[in-house]
């Protein structure tokens, strides 16, 4: 990394160094990504068997969000030079010089440390350890180590996004069982087809800054095959909570239908079936559907738990 960049003032030489606006600190936390983190975290919390005091439940979600925000700030700090070279990210607080690089690092470390400490003290230390692992996974293993080194970076990055429901579940139960691992696995398997479908129709400039994204390094054909492979792997993982008896037919039927649709939409992407009006329509359709897929699947998980708690349903596939 460029050592001189670390000491850069937030404004050009000769001008007054204005304090960074709070909005730029907020932008460091990647608020749009955080909405998905909060949603899946809440779903994990609500779908878990058992109860948690509403204040502690709120605190758990707040800590997950703060941990995600802290690791996102560390991501901004580490990738400031790369961000400056890409159109999509060039306007972020660090590449534009609106913020000192050290401030972003300190903010990220502080937010991460507070999130882990509060989670441990207020909710559960196992959840706090999981949150710490998630932060290290995203900020160090993914951002600093593997993202610039392997075209499978999206698969690895998916692991970071898979932590929130896992942590939400543990915050309630205080133990790691098959279900939180399955929730982790669902998002882990879902991320590659979701992101690579997007990568096929939105040309990014990752190649320009030396990040080995799969469509650029291995080509579109391999990317399409990988989308199909991960979609096929996602189906059994998504249905597994029903199969092991952790959910009822309500979640099970939603998982089966959604997974069948996901597979059906991945086939035209694999075959590169083109529509005359829009040559990348299958990819766009798959990408949009993948968003609905995750929201509906996790929503079904919560509905299933609520109905089970009311005594209206019970039993899994083999129960």
């Amino acid at each position: 990394m460029d050592a001189t960049a670390n000491t850069q003032a937030p404004v050009q030489e000769g001008k007054v160094a204005l304090p960074t606006e709070w909005r730029d600190f907020f932008a460091l936390t990647k608020p749009r990504v955080m909405t998905l983190v909060i949603f899946t975290g809440i779903c994990g919390l609500l779908a878990a068997p058992g109860t948690i005091h509403p204040v502690l439940g709120f605190t758990a979600i707040l800590c997950i969000a703060m941990g995600a925000g802290g690791s996102a700030a560390l991501n901004h700090w580490w990738e400031a030079d790369l961000d400056a070279g890409m159109k999509r990210t060039a306007n972020r607080p660090l590449p534009t010089g609106r913020m000192r690089r050290d401030d972003a690092r300190d903010f990220g470390v502080f937010l991460s440390a507070v999130s882990v400490f509060v989670m441990g003290v207020a909710v559960h230390w196992l959840a706090a350890i999981s949150l710490f692992a998630a932060i290290i996974y995203y900020a160090v293993i993914y951002t600093m180590w593997l993202k610039p080194r392997t075209p499978q970076n999206i698969v690895i990055g998916g692991g970071a996004g898979a932590f929130p429901p896992f942590i939400g579940w543990i915050a309630v139960t205080g133990e790691i069982t098959a279900m939180p691992i399955l929730l982790f696995a669902i998002i882990f398997m879902w991320t590659p087809p979701h992101f690579w479908a997007l990568a096929l129709f939105v040309k990014s400039d990752y190649a320009k800054v030396g990040i080995p994204m799969l469509p650029v390094v291995a080509g579109e054909r391999v990317t399409r095959q990988q989308i199909m492979i991960y979609t096929a792997l996602l189906a059994p993982v998504a249905i597994a909570p029903w199969a092991i008896g952790a959910t009822s037919w309500v979640y099970g039927s939603v998982a089966v239908v959604l997974s069948a649709l996901f597979l059906a939409l991945a086939v035209p992407v694999l075959r590169e079936q083109r529509a005359d009006s829009d040559p990348l329509k299958p990819e766009k359709t798959l990408f949009k559907f993948s968003i609905y897929y995750l929201f509906i699947l996790f929503g079904a998980l919560v509905v299933d738990r609520v109905l089970a708690n009311q005594g209206l349903i019970g039993g899994g596939l083999f129960a």
Partner: peptide, 13 residues
């Protein structure tokens, strides 16, 4: 102008 902007940002933070 710079002083006003400085104070505005400081106040916001």
């Amino acid at each position: 102008e710079e002083e006003a902007e400085f104070k505005r940002r400081q106040k916001g933070r």
